[in-house]
Design a protein around this nucleic acid. Structure first.
Lengths: 336, 336
DNA sequence: TGCAACGACGCAAACGAAGGCAGGCAAACG
DNA sequence: CGTTTGCCTGCCTTCGTTTGCGTCGTTGCA
């Protein structure tokens, strides 16, 4: 691997001069500059990022810690996050946790050991995670630690979505949510409850309007299981509040021969591209994944540059996609 | 940030001893060892990976270069790739190219500059990419350069898939493929042609059995466009040979009010989870994405360890998923 | 023509860890 | 009791880059 001293020797200058010529900082004669540049080009010199990182005390890299890389919910944000960071000269070090607090802690330590300039982190709910010595921005979920977070405005999104189901005339609505440990579960559930209770729904159907909540894990299998238990006394409308839960619910209805929306209305969460072409189209709340990624990147860059943004939860509004799965009574407003 | 000399001072030993105690290499007294370990623990010492990388001339990190992070086709491999590499003590540096040869070249250089120990690369078809000074394994596609590659056995997979369509009784079959620059397009197309021609299909329907091929780009929009042009003279069966092309085709048939499989039989490629629950289930060839990721990781680890595997294309067999979209004539064999 | 000032450039130190080398001390053996 | 052996240990150097400092030469102004 050709190094700076090789370039300097080839150009007939000291290595300090070569360094300055390459980096563009500090005064260097036009003649020497062109000789250095030419030598570097012809030798195929590329500056050693490990040595530079040691000297400069920064790596121009940031860590991304997500539960897994196959979930569009994370990768859609990650894609634009990566784009924004790359434009700012940073590269991405990725680790997955599978939602295990142990691996999450491990990943955080590994990132710190590698001296990344910052970390974007989808936190599990674990409270035992130790504070990181590098700037951290939370994405998708917030942990409650004193760290800025960028999330979707799930409370209002799911509230509106629920209102949509109510407006469609359904009087027996069930929501399926993920584990309470995740802020996403809590926010979505709160939005659901707010809309339903405001419309007079309660658990006992005292008013003739009934709401139910089933909690499971955030997987298709969890959704399928939850739906199966619901089958004993099926609601009129089901709200699986994550795209994987939607998947699970649809597997179960399919097996059970239940037609959506004819036998059961459905409104989902998330907007993977197949929602549009499934049956009559799945009505859903689409979180602003791209904007969230961009926002998280910007926040982290600010942090890296020494600015101290208030550690707050940034809730970005998403959009309702009104399609066919809520049945005939669905109003056409809000659609885009 | 606490460093080795801090630990050594706290433990009352020289920093060489501290280094040996921490790394476990070289003789160190039991007493000194425990003092060093204790000091490191209480100070929260974590060895500086940048300094270590400079000295050891390896980073314990590998680069992953993919077109984009939102495509399940890449992330499903990446997930297990990451798993295997992590188990071997390597971490992942990720770059996306958007299939731009320029950004691909740039990413390769960046990886080299960061002195990654190796690179896993989904190559675009560009021939102008310069050889990398670090070990490279190609994934999903092969470029023809002298580099080991791990791909799905698309030729045989698509050949069998096509045979399935033929066995179902369809006599007018069209395939939609991606750009010829990608090995995936060429292999899938070759498999399609092999099966069709062997069964007496040709472009002119001279034998009463007609095959058509439409080439477009590997996006849903490309698939939708291709399907729209096909609508002027619709085939009996359509084979969009990537999951995104399937998505595009289904968008068009939906808009046009064409029922799949009643009006048009379909067999796809890839197996995103929604294929199972779309309509009667999408019959498809599922490439072994997880195995490919694992295999690529193992190959790269061998390369890093100095072994020199023959630079060959490893084709891993996938599996046919026989579901409902090929229509009534579909035989039940081969299913799993 | 002399002096000052500034641009250009070489040399050296530092970033933090790892490993070679040599010295010291204790135990074991003659 | 002396010597050797071998483990333990501390110090020095190295990895490749950036940057501060000192020096030299040139130029401009009086």
């Amino acid at each position: 691997m050709v190094k700076l001293t090789d370039v300097a020797r080839a150009a007939g200058v000291g290595y300090g001069t070569a360094s300055r010529a390459l980096s563009g900082k500090g005064p260097v004669g036009g003649d020497a500059r062109t000789r250095v540049l030419e030598a570097a080009r012809s030798l195929g010199y590329t500056t050693d990022a490990t040595a530079r990182a040691l000297r400069e005390r920064r790596t121009r890299s940031v860590g991304l810690i997500v539960p897994d890389m196959t979930n569009e919910f994370y990768t859609a944000s990650a894609e634009v996050l990566q784009e924004v960071l790359r434009a700012a000269g940073h590269h991405l070090l990725v680790a997955t946790t599978g939602n295990h607090p142990g691996r999450e802690q491990e990943a955080l330590q590994e990132m710190a050991a590698r001296r990344v300039d910052g970390v974007v982190h989808v936190p599990s709910g674990a409270t035992a995670i130790q504070p990181s010595p590098v700037p951290v921005v939370e994405l998708n979920r917030y942990s409650g630690r004193n760290v800025p977070a960028v999330v979707s405005d799930d409370y209002n999104g799911v509230k509106e979505l629920t209102q949509l189901a109510i407006d469609a005339g359904h009087t027996d609505i069930a929501a399926i949510v993920g584990p309470d440990a995740y802020s996403t579960s809590r926010d979505r559930l709160a939005g659901f409850r707010a809309a339903a209770q405001q419309a007079g729904f309660d658990e006992n159907a005292a008013t003739g309007r009934r709401l139910r909540v089933v909690s499971t894990d955030f997987t298709a299998e969890g959704g399928a299981r939850a739906m199966r238990t619901l089958l004993a006394d099926p609601p009129q409308a089901i709200l699986p509040l994550s795209s994987r839960l939607v998947m699970g619910v649809l597997r179960t209805t399919r097996e059970a021969g239940i037609s959506v929306p004819d036998d059961l209305a459905l409104a989902g969460y998330g907007d993977p591209d197949w929602f549009e072409i499934w049956g009559s189209g799945i009505t859903t709340f689409a979180p602003p994944l791209a904007e969230m990624g961009a926002q998280a990147a910007k926040l982290l860059l600010d942090l890296i540059n020494g600015d101290q943004p208030a550690p707050a939860v940034h809730r970005i509004p998403g959009v309702l996609r009104i399609r066919g799965t809520l049945g005939k009574g669905t109003p056409a407003k809000h659609s885009d």
